[in-house]
């Protein structure tokens, strides 16, 4: 039972982790970033490459991956997204092109093979059942990350500027802040967090050029079902869908777990078209 609980928490944390970068970019900028899965994939490849070249695993994971993917995010914003603000469907299509491009590029560089990092931290044991202790790290990182994002958005001047820009860019620029810079920084932050998420999950998922496609559906459905309050919504949606997924996986198979998650999301959107956050207070972020 305790093991099942850890597994459920781990699924929830993984879901929150793959969604939060997308939630920032979609929630704050209304940009549908279809290259999100590839940002996760780049995070996984940066930790894989750095680690196999002798860099300490934790430095590769928590420093190199987010910085590298953040820089990629800046490039994407400057070259493509910037020209498409306000044209939501076009950003979706253009970022999809980017996603194909990045997948193709990584396939050319690393080949279409699965690489992997052996899962660190060994095992823990409850009631005679052994399971990977790395799950606790994933849960811990997710909690710290969400707390950090919440503090930045609610308690710092930077977060205030970011929220104000998303609310009313015209007024913010009258007050002396360039909204374009805010957009670039926000996109880069979302990309960096996605890179971190991809890196943290790399030891459990394996690293392959097409891995982004495995994430994209789940991440999008979580963020969309979350609704307008991006963090509260994404957190609640992750808890809900993560539980559905893992409980179904335990009683049947992993594939059915994912199918149950997606069907649950469809039914929920029929009942609450504005997402889960229409149920929580409108002061939540």
């Amino acid at each position: 039972m305790a093991i099942a609980l850890v597994q459920i928490l781990n699924t929830i944390a993984s879901l929150a982790l793959i969604s939060v970068g997308l939630a920032i970019i979609f929630g704050m900028m209304k940009v549908m970033n279809f290259a999100h899965g590839e940002l996760l994939m780049l995070g996984a490849y940066s930790v894989q490459t750095a680690y196999s070249n002798g860099v300490n695993l934790w430095i590769a994971m928590f420093v190199i991956a987010p910085i590298f993917v953040g820089i990629v995010g800046i490039l994407i914003e400057l070259l493509v997204i910037r020209h498409l603000y306000g044209r939501m469907m076009d950003t979706l299509l253009a970022t999809w092109g980017i996603s194909l491009f990045i997948t193709g590029l990584i396939t050319m560089i690393f080949g279409n093979v699965t690489q992997g990092i052996s899962t660190p931290l060994g095992f823990y044991e409850i009631g005679g059942i052994r399971d990977s202790a790395y799950k606790f790290l994933i849960i811990g990182v997710t909690v710290v990350l969400f707390a950090g994002i919440w503090i930045v958005l609610k308690k710092t001047r930077m977060g205030l500027i970011a929220r104000a820009t998303m609310n009313n860019p015209g007024q913010v620029s009258v007050l002396g802040v360039n909204p374009r810079v805010v957009y670039t920084v926000t996109f880069a932050a979302g990309a960096a967090i996605s890179g971190l998420a991809g890196a943290v999950l790399a030891p459990v998922t394996g690293v392959v050029p097409t891995m982004g496609a495995a994430y994209i559906g789940k991440a999008f459905i979580t963020v969309i079902c979350g609704g307008d309050a991006i963090f509260a919504g994404t957190a609640i949606a992750s808890v809900l869908f993560g539980s559905i997924n893992q409980v179904t996986t335990i009683v049947s198979t992993a594939e059915f777990g994912e199918v149950a998650l997606l069907i649950g999301a469809l039914l929920m959107l029929r009942v609450l078209p504005k997402g889960i956050s229409s149920l929580v207070s409108n002061r939540a972020v």
Binding site: V80, H83, L93, G97, L100, F101, T103, G104, T107
Partner: peptide
């Protein structure tokens, strides 16, 4: 030499930006 996805992705992005 060139991956199919790389070329298709590039063509597609450029079309959305320049010849929507």
């Amino acid at each position: 030499m060139l991956d199919v996805n790389l070329v298709l992705g590039a063509i597609f992005t450029i079309f959305v930006l320049l010849v929507p």
